[in-house]
Write a protein that binds this DNA or RNA. Structure first.
Length: 367
DNA sequence: TATACGTGGTT
DNA sequence: TAACCAAGTAT
């Protein structure tokens, strides 16, 4: 018997929710940000985990979450940190606007709300970096409000349960409307987490384990034999390939030229090595020399750095140059960083690849 | 509504 | 291997 959430009785919907909660109680995963039995929920940890988990896997988040909560056990502690320290701790996690908003949000909660996160979905949604999903998730999980977050898991579970034919991203709001009809007054936070766990472990994007699903008899997509076809997705656009030249500028004392990226946009606020623009047209050697941060003898290192961003792929050529003493004319906002201090910089993964490549090839002859 | 925004793991 | 995918938000 399949579910029809718009016409099913309240009792039938409550039974469906109850079955999922029972499944959750049997299969509950112990995650570091979840309160253990008898522990009270800490809104700070819920919020921090939800921000980290945006578009990021549990496996990746775990070590960052442990590091952040060790260094900054409270929202006030995080608010007191320097932005650069937060960016440094966030390096490698990606989507760096999250780190900037995290810091801004901690300050807002500390100054505007006296260190207590607001409990309502509407107030939560006014905080930097907190959108509709995160506001609902915190309200439900940390404050027991009957809110219905819709993440990718929940959208997929609902799209299958109700065979939503509308393609993403519009399917998301439809999924939210339907999921709200299932959300129980009791344990709304557990219900949301149960939906997400179900999506993450059973109702997976590919090859869902329907035999293990507490909703197998209610699932419309399953009854149609089309579970894997939901949610419908629009065709993806190809990611263009962009090219750039990046300059590894070494002083005779071993220092390297670095600079800070603009506060917003790609890798905003993170450290980088001076580089050309990243464009689709490859750079000629002559163009690269003209774009170099200082007029010295450069050599092009063998090989390239390849890196994938969300909306384009990047191929960087690394050029290496050595310079004596203190050149009068450089820089812009660039500065020298001692070799041993590189690890103290907030370097995104791309720039770590560049540094590793440059150091591996230092001493070789370029082509 | 559409696009910008990282990275690592899986298939 | 290239594509796909992940507990989304800001603009």
């Amino acid at each position: 018997m399949t579910a029809s959430l718009l016409t099913d009785s309240l009792r039938k919907r409550a039974a469906l929710a109850g079955r999922l909660l029972a499944w959750y109680d049997r299969n509950r995963r112990d995650l570091p940000w979840r309160a253990g039995p008898g522990e009270s929920v800490d809104p700070y940890r819920v919020w921090l985990s939800e921000i980290m988990l945006q578009q990021t896997t549990v496996a990746t988040v775990t070590s960052y979450f442990a590091d952040f909560t060790n260094r900054w056990p409270t929202v006030e502690a995080l608010a007191s940190a320097e932005l650069d320290a937060v960016l440094h701790a966030w390096q490698g996690l990606g989507y760096y606007a999250r780190a900037r908003n995290l810091h801004a949000c901690a300050k807002r909660v500390t100054t505007q709300f006296g260190g207590r996160f607001p409990a309502s979905e509407a107030e939560l949604a006014t905080l930097p970096g907190v959108g509709p999903y995160t506001a609902a998730a915190i309200a439900a999980i940390a404050f027991g409000q009957a809110a219905t977050p819709v993440d990718g898991n929940i959208a997929r579970v609902m799209a299958r349960l109700c065979a939503i034919e509308i393609p993403l991203p519009a399917a998301r709001s439809e999924a939210g409307r339907l999921a709200a009809r299932l959300t129980p007054k009791e344990r709304p936070g557990d219900f949301a987490q149960a939906m997400m766990d179900l999506g993450a472990t059973v109702c997976t994007p590919r090859r869902p384990a329907c035999a293990l699903c507490p909703w197998i008899d209610a699932c419309n997509a399953r009854s149609l034999g089309r579970a894997e076809e939901f949610p419908r997705r629009p065709a993806k656009r190809a990611r263009p390939l962009r090219h750039g030249v990046i300059f590894w500028t070494e002083r005779t004392d071993g220092s390297v030229l670095v600079q800070r990226r603009p506060e917003s946009g790609l890798l905003g606020g993170m450290a980088e090595f001076p580089s050309t623009d990243w464009r689709e047209e490859p750079w000629t050697d002559a163009e690269a020399r003209r774009a170099a941060p200082v007029a010295i003898r450069w050599r092009r290192l063998p090989g390239t750095i390849e890196h994938g961003f969300t909306h384009f792929r990047l191929e960087l050529t690394v050029w290496s140059g050595r310079i004596d003493s203190h050149p009068a004319a450089i820089l812009g906002n660039a500065r020298w960083c001692e070799a041993g201090a590189l690890s103290g910089l907030a370097l995104p993964t791309l720039m770590r690849k560049v540094a590793r490549h440059a150091m591996e090839h230092s001493g070789e002859t370029g082509t």
